[in-house]
């Protein structure tokens, strides 16, 4: 374990370092874009609740809905971390070779890099958002907070593994642009980043419950909001873990097959 950290932590460190050194403005704009997004959605919900005269919409008070919006936005930033583009770009440019000649596991290295950025963004952006949210709404006991964080980490891993499978498609299709955006839209919708999943018709909800996307955003946020009892928390965490195992296995098999198909483009 210690050796693992020693090997892969440098990748996290280097990525964060390069990110701060080279793109301070981008980091700021990222935060700026997120804030605007949150405001837009805030006002949409405000109008919906006001014009409809709802006190409770599918079990959400206006207050809870706003917490949902803020948190799902933050969770989306943490979980949607550009893994697809990193992998697709390295395969497409052939630069993947510079990593394959090193004594490192490719998945682990990408995860370390993505994790580095995610961790950094969490520190400078998500934490403040989270703390403000907690102070404002005063929901969630320390225990649910712990479950929330744990569930969110599982969500990050699910998202990473899913993205990685998508990125590996670049071995077969040489341009992932369209597919990547399709995936982004799909994940946003099915993970609950746009609207809470309870707004979907019942049969569709049943399907979404068994798909992995729910575990990326909806599950952690619902735990934070205290919408789950302890049994539901347990079931949801187990579902997340099951998906990590399944996606992990799929990654392993896909990678093993895809790597033999590798052609290094451009010399």
């Amino acid at each position: 374990m210690k050796k693992w950290f020693k090997t892969y932590l440098p990748f996290s460190r280097a990525t964060v370092q390069a990110h701060i050194l080279a793109y301070p403005f981008e980091t700021f704009m990222y935060f700026f874009g997120m804030t605007i997004g949150i405001f837009v959605v805030y006002y949409i919900w405000k109008i919906i609740y006001a014009t409809g005269g709802y006190n409770l919409l599918e079990g959400f008070t206006f207050h809870e809905m706003i917490v949902y919006v803020v948190l799902s936005f933050a969770a989306m930033q943490v979980t949607d971390n550009g893994t697809v583009w990193i992998i697709a770009d390295e395969i497409k440019s052939g630069n993947i070779i510079m990593n394959l000649i090193k004594p490192i596991n490719y998945h682990m290295r990408v995860f370390a890099e993505v994790g580095g950025i995610t961790g950094f963004l969490t520190m400078v952006m998500i934490f403040p958002v989270l703390i403000i949210t907690i102070l404002m709404v005063k929901i969630g006991t320390p225990i649910t907070m712990m479950f929330f964080i744990f569930s969110l980490i599982l969500g990050v891993v699910i998202s990473f593994l899913f993205d990685f499978i998508f990125g590996m498609l670049a071995f077969y299709v040489k341009n992932l642009w369209g597919i990547g955006f399709g995936k982004y839209a799909l994940v946003r919708l099915l993970s609950g980043a746009l609207i809470p999943l309870v707004f979907f018709p019942k049969p569709i909800q049943g399907v979404l419950n068994v798909l992995p996307f729910k575990g990326i955003i909806y599950t952690p946020v619902m735990i934070f909001l205290g919408k789950y009892n302890s049994e539901e928390i347990l079931i949801n965490l187990l579902t997340q873990m099951m998906w990590i195992a399944v996606l992990g296995l799929m990654n392993y098999l896909f990678w093993k097959k895809a790597i033999t198909k590798l052609t290094i483009q451009g010399g």
Binding site: T7, P10, G94, M98
Partner: peptide
């Protein structure tokens, strides 16, 4: 093994060169 592909680089583009060496030291133990 050590590998140099003249058309590519294994150095960290945005970091000082020295940093790349330190990172490689850790990767290769």
């Amino acid at each position: 093994i050590g590998v140099v592909f003249g058309q590519r680089t294994q150095l960290w583009w945005d970091l000082p060169l020295e940093e790349t060496f330190t990172i490689l030291k850790e990767i290769y133990n």
